[in-house]
Lab assay of single mutants.
Amino acid sequence: MTVLPKDIPGDSLKVTVGTANGKPGDTVTVPVTFADVAKMKNVGTCNFYLGYDASLLEVVSVDAGPIVKNAAVNFSSSASNGTISFLFLDNTITDELITADGVFANIKFKLKSVTAKTTTPVTFKDGGAFGDGTMSKIASVTKTNGSVTIDP
């Protein structure tokens, strides 16, 4: 049996954390987006972790974005102690894959008090994996961190 590389060099799934701005007490939304989904033969499963400074940001909610089908079954998240974990699994293993680019999740943060303008990162942590529509590992994932700026 011969195994051929399935990824064209330079191609990767792009996962990007967005940015937001606000004043202390505001609730802002930071999107997590996927790009080049079709090039990577869709997404059938993924789990990953984001870190944030809990002294500056309070997670209000984490909701599935419009590219997630049947989110009540296929999407899960949790947030505590400065870490947000995400889990997606197409429970049907074929019919509810992520097949389009767009917003995977929206994180709502309540901004805490600061004395001066502060930009705090929302960054990928170690761990996690992504699988394509056949549940094979997506070897190349380009992750881009985001941030939230609090301006009193």
Score class of each variant (00 low, 15 high):
Thr123Ile: 07
Asn74Leu: 00
Thr149Leu: 15
Lys6Asp: 13
Ser80Lys: 15
Phe48Val: 04
Asn145His: 03
Gly133Ile: 01
Asp26Thr: 12
Thr144Leu: 07
Phe104Val: 03
Ala38Ile: 13
Asn145Glu: 05
Leu50Lys: 05
Asn70Val: 10
Asp53Tyr: 14
Thr29Arg: 09
Gly146Ile: 04
Lys117Gly: 04
Gly133His: 04
Val30Ala: 10
Ser61Tyr: 13
Gly51Thr: 08
Thr149His: 15
Val59Cys: 08
Asn21Glu: 11
Ala64Met: 04
Val30Trp: 12
Asn91His: 07
Val59Ala: 07
Ser55Leu: 08
Lys117Ser: 05
Gly146Gln: 03
Met135Thr: 02
Ser12Val: 11
Val59Asn: 09
Gly51Asp: 14
Asp95Thr: 04
Thr92Asp: 00
Gly25Glu: 12
Lys143Thr: 02
Asn91Val: 05
Phe86Gln: 01
Pro24Gln: 12
Val37Trp: 03
Val15Gly: 09
Ser113Trp: 06
Ser61Pro: 07
Gly10Pro: 13
Gly25Ile: 13
Asn91Leu: 04
Lys108Val: 05
Thr2Pro: 10
Ala129Asn: 00
Phe88Gly: 01
Gly146Asn: 06
Pro5His: 08
Pro31Glu: 10
Lys108Glu: 06
Ser113Gly: 08
Glu58Phe: 09
Ser113Cys: 05
Lys143Pro: 01
Ser113Asn: 05
Gly82Glu: 15
Lys39Arg: 10
Asn42Thr: 11
Val103Leu: 03
Ser76Ile: 02
Phe130Lys: 00
Val148Cys: 08
Leu87Phe: 03
Ser12Gln: 08
Tyr49Ser: 02
Val15Lys: 06
Thr45Phe: 01
Ile150Trp: 07
Ser61Glu: 11
Ser136Ala: 02
Asp26Val: 11
Asn47Cys: 03
Ala38Gln: 11
Thr123Met: 14
Cys46Asp: 03
Ile150Leu: 14
Ser140Gly: 12
Phe75Val: 03
Ser140Glu: 01
Thr45Gln: 00
Gly18Thr: 13
Gly82Met: 15
Ala100Ile: 06
Ile93Arg: 02
Gly146Leu: 04
Lys137Arg: 04
Val32Pro: 01
Thr29Asp: 14
Leu57Ile: 12
Ala20Thr: 11
Leu50Ile: 08
Thr149Tyr: 15
Asp90Ile: 01
Thr134Ser: 07
Ile150Met: 13
Thr92Met: 04
Asp53Glu: 07
Asp11Thr: 11
Asn91Glu: 15
Asp132Arg: 03
Lys69Pro: 08
Ile93His: 02
Thr149Lys: 14
Ala72Ser: 13
Ala105Ser: 09
Ser80Gly: 08
Thr83Asp: 07
Asp11Met: 14
Asp90Lys: 02
Phe124Asn: 10
Val114Leu: 07
Leu89Cys: 03
Val114Trp: 10
Gly10Tyr: 07
Ser12Asn: 14
Phe130Tyr: 05
Gly146Val: 05
Lys14Met: 10
Leu89Gly: 01
Ser12Leu: 12
Thr19Trp: 14
Val141Ile: 05
Thr83Tyr: 15
Thr144Tyr: 07
Gly102Ile: 12
Glu58Leu: 10
Cys46Met: 14
Phe130Trp: 03
Pro152Gln: 14
Phe130Asn: 00
Leu57Gly: 10
Glu96Asp: 06
Asn81Gln: 15
Val141Lys: 02
Lys110Val: 05
Ser136Trp: 15
Ile67Met: 09
Met40Asn: 15
Thr16Cys: 10
Leu56Met: 10
Thr92Val: 03
Ile98Lys: 05
Asp95His: 03
Lys69Asn: 12
Gly82His: 15
Val43Arg: 00
Asn47Ser: 02
Ser78Ala: 15
Thr142Val: 06
Asp95Gln: 03
Thr2Arg: 08
Ala20His: 09
Asp63Trp: 11
Phe109Trp: 08
Ser140Asn: 05
Gly44Asp: 03
Ile8Ser: 11
Ser147Tyr: 04
Gly18Lys: 12
Lys110Glu: 04
Asn70Phe: 06
Leu4Thr: 12
Lys69Ile: 13
Val3Leu: 12
Gly44Ile: 13
Gly102Asp: 06
Ala71Asp: 12
Pro31Phe: 10
Val68Tyr: 07
Leu97Met: 06
Gly22Ser: 13
Val17Ile: 10
Val30Asn: 09
Met135Lys: 03
Glu96Ser: 03
Gly127Thr: 02
Val28Met: 09
